[in-house]
Amino acid sequence: MFNPWSQDPDRRARCRNALARLVAFTHRGLALVGGLVAVLLLWIWLQPQWLQPLEQRLATWLRARDVLTVLWPPNTAERATAVHLQDLPPQQALVANWLARKYKVAPEPLAALVAEAHVQAKTSKLPAHLILAVMATESSFHPYVQSQAGAQGLMQVMTGIHAQRYEAYGGRLAAFDPVTNLRVGVAVLSDAIKLRGGSLEEGLLFYLGGYAMTEDNGYVAKVLAEKARLDAVAAGQKTPAD
């Protein structure tokens, strides 16, 4: 059988030299990578405060690309309506903690709602504690409550009547998203107060039952009393939560 290598010794030498260079190059490359990894690990060991941000960025990158979704589930905490009390200003944290104890709801979701109420207060010109008092009176901060008349969610908005307001948020089912229900409820309440000539009491009565409502069975007084308690809590006054 013809053997091309036996006919050309120089070719064998050239091949051996090329193979030796490839092995040497690969060895140097691996050594360089190993050195860089060692330097990186040493840097992380000396600067541990950088480890968590790097882990979070890597996790975000992997989740965005659906990498290892079975072993690394999506971070649903990012979608949760919840924040830590320590992330709130002190007065808001006092209110959130008080409401959580009174209505037996976890403080982290309450903290998120308190923060959102203050955001909505700036745009609607309604007091944040009034917004929270309405939620407390209407639903006791349970986002999935539904009345026999069809009022739904935290602020017990009549979804059938105000369905169009939910369109920007994806439709009627958004009524059961706590923050969305809060925003829509604030818009409805703000319009009710304007419709009743700026009267807070008349606006609350209209929010409760529209034009047909003449007797509120103490609803308005209950909302305003709860607002006054929240004002006292935020001011640091001792206020019973029972």
Results as ranks from 00 to 15, higher is better:
139 S>Q: 09
105 V>F: 07
176 F>K: 07
133 A>G: 02
158 M>E: 10
177 D>A: 11
117 A>N: 01
132 L>N: 02
193 I>V: 11
128 A>K: 01
167 E>T: 11
129 H>C: 04
128 A>R: 07
99 L>T: 03
128 A>E: 04
176 F>W: 13
96 A>G: 11
162 H>Y: 13
121 A>F: 03
143 P>V: 04
112 A>D: 02
186 V>E: 01
94 L>W: 04
176 F>I: 05
122 K>A: 08
96 A>T: 03
107 P>C: 10
112 A>R: 15
189 L>P: 00
151 A>P: 04
123 T>V: 09
131 I>W: 09
120 Q>D: 00
97 N>Q: 13
190 S>V: 00
182 L>M: 15
170 G>C: 05
146 Q>S: 11
179 V>Q: 14
177 D>N: 15
188 V>G: 02
153 G>H: 08
131 I>F: 02
182 L>D: 08
130 L>K: 04
181 N>M: 13
152 Q>C: 13
114 V>R: 05
108 E>V: 01
173 L>Q: 15
95 V>S: 13
153 G>D: 10
172 R>L: 12
113 L>R: 04
178 P>F: 10
104 K>Q: 11
146 Q>H: 08
98 W>H: 13
173 L>I: 14
161 I>E: 03
134 V>E: 06
108 E>I: 06
133 A>P: 02
160 G>V: 15
142 H>C: 03
166 Y>N: 13
147 S>V: 12
155 M>R: 06
167 E>P: 01
106 A>Y: 07
134 V>K: 08
173 L>K: 15
122 K>C: 06
148 Q>R: 15
155 M>H: 05
169 Y>F: 15
150 G>Q: 07
174 A>P: 09
187 A>S: 14
185 G>I: 02
97 N>P: 00
152 Q>N: 12
120 Q>G: 00
119 V>Q: 12
109 P>A: 05
163 A>P: 12
98 W>K: 01
125 K>I: 00
145 V>D: 04
160 G>E: 11
141 F>V: 10
139 S>F: 12
177 D>C: 14
153 G>L: 12
151 A>T: 06
93 A>G: 11
151 A>N: 13
134 V>F: 12
155 M>A: 14
190 S>M: 02
124 S>Y: 04
184 V>K: 07
121 A>E: 09
109 P>H: 09
183 R>S: 03
94 L>K: 14
134 V>G: 03
147 S>K: 08
101 R>F: 11
171 G>S: 11
161 I>V: 12
133 A>Y: 03
112 A>P: 08
177 D>W: 09
102 K>A: 15
120 Q>I: 00
147 S>H: 07
169 Y>E: 07
180 T>R: 15
108 E>C: 03
147 S>T: 15
